[in-house]
Design a protein around this nucleic acid. Structure first.
Lengths: 158, 158
DNA sequence: ATAAAATTGTTAATATGTGTATTATTGCCT
DNA sequence: AGGCAATAATACACATATTAACAATTTTAT
């Protein structure tokens, strides 16, 4: 696919930078759409799936995570987590309990049915992601990750 | 920044693929936030800025683009363009005119004030994007774009 | 020429994202 | 101890994204 926007500037470097930005935008957008279609039959969105993956793999012994932790891990605003958990609680994927040690915090935990659903989806999802990314050899994937991390770190510092 | 999710699978390749996917997600997200903050003082969102850039650089002689063309270039659903143009029309950035040659279509054109605003922002924006991306040397930027394009093309084929 | 199919834009319902303000708590500082 | 700053969740207004259903129009097939 070719570049959609041309800056029309004299500096080729700025043009290249813009193309790199757009390429990242578009690839993320396509990846999200693909994940969305893949997860739709299971009644999950990709955001909800990612949240459940965090609960499964990033909480110690299934103790759950607070909304603030989820917000920080998912790089989204705290306010966004509130409505997300509302929907997922209603759907029966997670529970929300007030933390006994800090009454400001809520502890989010996967339900049994949430765990079961995740166990079914996870291997299929891993296979699908592998299929998509294996157009790049292992070394390329590592370089891609490295370059994107450099860009991310260069955004944050200011 | 390290990987937020670990799949816990035996296959390291699948894990790497997942990390590459998340890295693309997160980088796009950070780039969008940064662009959003940059454009906020001008009363524009990054989506609106990108749409105006398309109108400026991708329409022949400023004849404008149809909503379907914009939808296809921006990789978003047609339905989304309707409300987007509503807001931008109300803000005075663009006009919407029914096409004489195809009465199903609307022609979207930049207003004079939209053009003026864009002319002011564009060089500043190019500079900012250049600053962010120049953490990668030119050759790396090209390789990044190439890899992301490969991934995109591998998503579409099915 | 006409019927069927495709395209364009809109609307509605819903999910996800932001920023800002508010409330409830907790932690820190003197 | 008492006051003040920081943190956690929520509420609200809004922007952006999706799918599905629809009406108007154009194109295609026969």
């Amino acid at each position: 696919m070719s570049l959609e926007i041309e800056l029309g500037l004299n500096e080729p470097v700025a043009l290249l930078a813009h193309e790199a930005l757009l390429s990242t935008y578009y690839t993320a957008s396509n990846l999200r759409k693909k994940a969305g279609h893949f997860l739709q039959p299971f009644g999950l969105t990709d955001v909800q799936f990612n949240l459940m993956m965090l609960l499964k793999h990033q909480s110690r012994k299934g103790e759950g995570l607070t909304q603030a932790q989820l917000s920080s891990m998912m790089l989204v605003n705290r306010a966004n987590i509130t409505s997300l958990i509302d929907r997922m609680e209603k759907a029966g994927f997670v529970t929300r309990t007030s933390s006994p040690s800090d009454r400001r915090s809520n502890i989010i935990v996967l339900t049994e049915s949430g765990k079961e659903l995740l166990d079914r989806i996870e291997p299929l999802y891993a296979e699908e992601v592998k299929r998509i990314m294996d157009i790049l050899v292992e070394d390329e994937q590592k370089r891609l990750i490295g370059m994107l991390e450099k860009v991310r770190s260069n955004i944050k510092e200011d």
